[in-house]
Structures are given as C-alpha cells and as structure tokens.
Nucleic acid binder design. Structure first.
Length: 277
DNA sequence: CGGACAACCTGGCGGC
DNA sequence: TGCCGCCAGGTTGTCC
C-alpha cells in the first residue's frame, strides 16, 4: 500500500523532526519487526547515535546515523510518526518498535499486520543493492527504460511491480500508469510498440509524481507522518473504481487479477491488442 | 528467464 | 447480533 509517493511523503514529514537528534534508547515488543541484526544487538548498537539525514530509496526509509544506517520498510500497514513520549496517537495500539530521542519525543513504528521491518546495517547496500533505478531520477531516461525492457517478456504489470526492474512502483501506481498509457495490464512486455513504451515511461513518472503532489493515497491504513490523510486516492483513474465510469470514456472500470493481485483497468481504453494513440 | 503460490499477519467487510 | 471466510497487498522464498 505505501508505495513510492506515500513513503516519500512520510520522509518529508519526518525529516525536520529527526535530523540532528540523538537516539537515547530503542524499544520493541515484537521481535519479528527487527529484520537484522538481532533485537538485542540493535538495541545496544543504536543507542547514543546521532541522526545525520533521512531519505528514501524505493519504498525504504533510510536514516543515516553516525555509524550505521537505520532502515524501515512499511510494507502494507506500517506507520511511522514522532510524538511526545506522553502523547497518544490513533495508531498506538499497534506500535512494535520505538526510538526515544534526546528531546522528550519518540519515533514510533506502528504496524497492524506486522509485515513491516526495521534494519540496522553499516552499509545501505546490504538492503538496497538489488533494487532497480529510481523512476523519478534524472538519470532514469526513456532510453534506460527501453534498455531494461530488452530481453524481457513478462506480463507488463508484473514487471512494473518488480522492484529489481524499477524501484518504488506497487499495485496501485502500476494500475494507474498502465491506464494513463492505454495499455492492458496483461500485455506481455515484449509486445509493446516503441510508442507504447515511451508513453508508459512518461505515465509511470507522471502517476508517481501525482501521488507525491497529493501527499500519498490513504486507502485504509496509510497516513502522513503527522497522522492526517493524503488525498491521492481521490484522483485515481482506475484503482478502487471497479464498476464506476472510466474518467476518459465512461465505460465501466473492470477488475481482474494479475500475479495474484487485484488489477483495475478500462477494457475500452486499454485493449489487449496494440493501440496507437 | 517466467510464473504460480505459500508464507508472513490482522482488521474489515460481505454473506448468511 | 454473531460467526465464517474472504480480501487487502510488499516481499521473500520455493518449486516447476
């Protein structure tokens, strides 16, 4: 659920509250939330480290410390927020990890479904080395996109969601990008025309950027760092709009499954055969 | 290389 | 009202 735009929004909301602070102590109540090292080692190693910077890589939140990197993945229902130690929050019931700061506030990691993970590593690459390019980077050009598609034949939606192919696109923005490009989600990647590839390159970026501009989509669990909802969901063309009229042609949006995931598309605007715009 | 599917978890919701 | 079973989707790992 949190995809690139949601994670980016969280990072922007947390940056000023974290950078420059020193971590006094770590706390957890669910060992599975800590991916590595062992919970005991993480607690011992992280105490006393100063927070240098906060950034995003794909869907990972990367916090550079003096000697290590503290990394968080929200997976589907994770929430990350800062509050005064005596301040209550709606998501507190599911807090499984906390970092106490030197100003009386704390960073809380709440996660209903416990899929989310935190990491403490001395090299970011340990976690991010297999990720594909950042779709919004200037270095990710249409030529790079075309090169990466060469020799691939996967169903296009599956490929868009493959984090080693492009980093940060999940189920929602994959559906949105494919709709905007007029490409059926079940098309094989090696069946796309040059023109379709160029369009898809543009719409992947445009869909993600729109998500960031609207501060992320709050489908059910996602919240911004301050606890309020983003409104990207109010601007979706197809995601979650099954049975509703296509914003482009009026045909009812249909839902199917691709790679075991709910997939929304307009059968009229996204035909299975090739389509020249 | 690609695809299918289970596993990790829990809350929300539709159906009865 | 209550119970049951399905659905949600990011990632990893296994198997073919």
């Amino acid at each position: 659920m949190p995809e690139l735009p949601e994670v980016e929004t969280v990072v922007r909301g947390l940056r000023d509250q974290l950078v420059g602070r020193t971590i006094k102590e770590a706390w957890y109540n669910w060992r599975g939330t800590i991916n590595r090292p062992s919970p005991e080692e993480l607690v011992a190693r992280i105490a006393g480290q100063k927070i240098i910077s906060l950034n995003r890589r794909a869907k990972y939140i990367v916090c550079k410390l003096e000697h290590d990197y503290f990394i968080v993945h929200l997976k589907m229902t994770g929430r990350l927020y800062v509050a005064a130690s005596d301040e209550e929050n709606d998501a507190d019931n599911w807090v499984h990890f906390k970092l106490m700061l030197d100003n009386g506030r704390e960073l809380r990691f709440s996660d209903v479904r416990k899929f989310g993970k935190v990491y403490l590593v001395d090299d970011v690459e340990e976690v991010t080395s297999k990720l594909g390019p950042e779709p919004l980077d200037d270095t990710f050009t249409v030529d790079v996109f075309k090169e990466r598609l060469e020799g691939r034949s996967k169903v296009i939606k599956t490929l868009l969601m493959d984090q080693t192919f492009i980093a940060g696109v999940g189920n929602i923005y994959a559906d949105e990008a494919l709709f905007r490009a007029g490409i059926h989600p079940k098309r094989r990647s090696d069946s796309l025309s040059e023109d379709e590839i160029s369009r898809l390159y543009e719409t992947v970026r445009a869909s993600l950027q729109a998500g960031i501009d609207h501060e992320g989509a709050s489908i059910n669990w996602y919240r911004k760092a301050d606890g309020t909802k983003g409104n990207s969901q109010d601007h979706f063309f197809v995601y979650g709009r099954t049975g509703k009229p296509c914003k482009n042609c009026g045909h009812a949006i249909e839902k199917t499954r691709v790679a075991q995931r709910g997939t929304h598309y307009c059968p009229n605007c996204q035909p299975l055969g090739k389509k020249e715009a």
